[in-house]
Computed example of a mutant assay.
Amino acid sequence: MNFLKVVDKIILKIEEFILSYAVIIIALMVVGKALSRAIFSYTPPFADEVSQIAIVVATFMGISYAARKGRHISMSAFYDLAPFKVRKALMIFIPFVTAVVLFVLTYYSAFYVLDIYESGRVTSALEMPSYFLYIFIPIGFLLGGIQFLRNMWINIKERDAIYLGTDAKDYNDENNQDIQEGTHL
C-alpha cells in the first residue's frame, strides 16, 4: 500500500509540474504574441501552436488534478439540498459513472491518436508530429478515470464523511460542523 501512495504522490507532483508550466507557457505565448505584434508588427509563427499545445495539455491533464482536489465542475443544486445519505449515495454513483465515461473516452481517443500517428501529420509551424499534441488526451482521460474511481472508493471506505475528491471533504459537512461547533461555545 505504501508503494501506491508513493506512486500517487509522484503522479501528483508530475501533474502539478505539467499544469503549472502549461499555464505559464500559455501566458507567455499569448502576451508575447500580443506585445510582439504591437511593438514589432511581427508575430512568431510558432506562438499559436505552442499555445494550442499548452491548452490541450492543461485541459486534459487537469482532469485528474481537478478530480483529486474536488475542483471539477458539478451541478450541485439538488445535491446541496439532499440529506447526508442521499449525498453519500450520489458521491459513490456519480464518480463511478464519470469514470466509466472517461475510460470510454480514453479508448476512443487512443484510437484517434493512433490514427494521427499512422497518418504522419505534422504541425504547420513547428513541423512536429501532430500526435505529440494529442497524446495528452487519452492520458488525461485515463488518469481522470482512475482518480474518479479513487473518489468513489474513498466514499465507500469512509462511512462518516463525504469526499468530493480524495483530497477534499464535502463543503456541506464542513459548514454544518462549523455551525454546530460554534453553537457549543
Rank of each mutant, 00 (worst) to 15 (best):
S119P: 00
V113A: 01
M75L: 10
Y107E: 03
S76N: 14
V97T: 13
D115K: 04
I92W: 10
Y112G: 15
F103V: 07
L81I: 09
D115W: 01
L133P: 00
V101Y: 13
I92L: 07
A82R: 01
S76A: 10
F103A: 05
G70P: 02
S130C: 00
F78M: 12
V100Q: 09
L126H: 08
F103R: 11
Y131E: 03
M91L: 06
P83R: 05
Y79P: 04
K69Q: 11
V101C: 11
T106V: 08
L126T: 10
F103M: 12
S124C: 02
P83G: 11
F84W: 08
R87P: 02
G70W: 05
L102E: 05
L126G: 13
R71Q: 15
Y79S: 07
F103K: 12
I135R: 03
V101I: 15
V113Q: 01
Y117F: 15
F93E: 05
R68K: 15
L126I: 09
P129K: 12
V97C: 12
L90D: 13
S119A: 13
S124H: 08
H72V: 02
L126Y: 04
T98K: 01
L133E: 00
S76L: 11
Y107M: 09
I135Y: 05
V100R: 12
L81C: 03
Y134E: 03
I94F: 08
T123Y: 02
Y108W: 05
P95I: 08
I116F: 08
L90P: 04
S109Q: 07
S109H: 06
L133C: 09
L102H: 05
I73Q: 14
Y79M: 04
L133Y: 03
L90Q: 15
M91V: 02
A99H: 14
P129S: 11
I116Y: 04
A99Y: 14
V86K: 14
A125G: 05
Y107S: 05
Y134C: 04
F78V: 14
V113T: 05
L126C: 08
V101T: 14
Y108F: 12
Y107K: 06
S74M: 06
H72C: 00
A89M: 10
V122F: 13
S74R: 15
V113S: 02
M91F: 05
L102C: 03
P83N: 13
V104C: 13
L114C: 01
A125V: 06
V100E: 07
I135F: 11
Y117M: 09
Y131K: 01
G70V: 02
A82P: 01
D115E: 07
D80F: 11
L114E: 08
A110F: 10
I116D: 00
F103Q: 10
L90N: 15
V113R: 03
T106Q: 01
V122Y: 15
F111T: 02
V101H: 10
I116T: 09
L133D: 01
K85E: 15
V100W: 10
Y134W: 15
V86Y: 11
S109K: 07
K88C: 07
T123I: 06
A110H: 02
Y108I: 00
T123A: 07
P83K: 10
V86Q: 13
K85Y: 14
P129L: 15
E118W: 00
I94D: 02
F93N: 04
P129H: 11
R68V: 06
S124M: 08
Y107I: 05
P83M: 07
P129N: 09
E118F: 00
F78W: 07
Y117V: 02
E127L: 07
Y112W: 11
P83A: 11
F132E: 03
F84N: 13
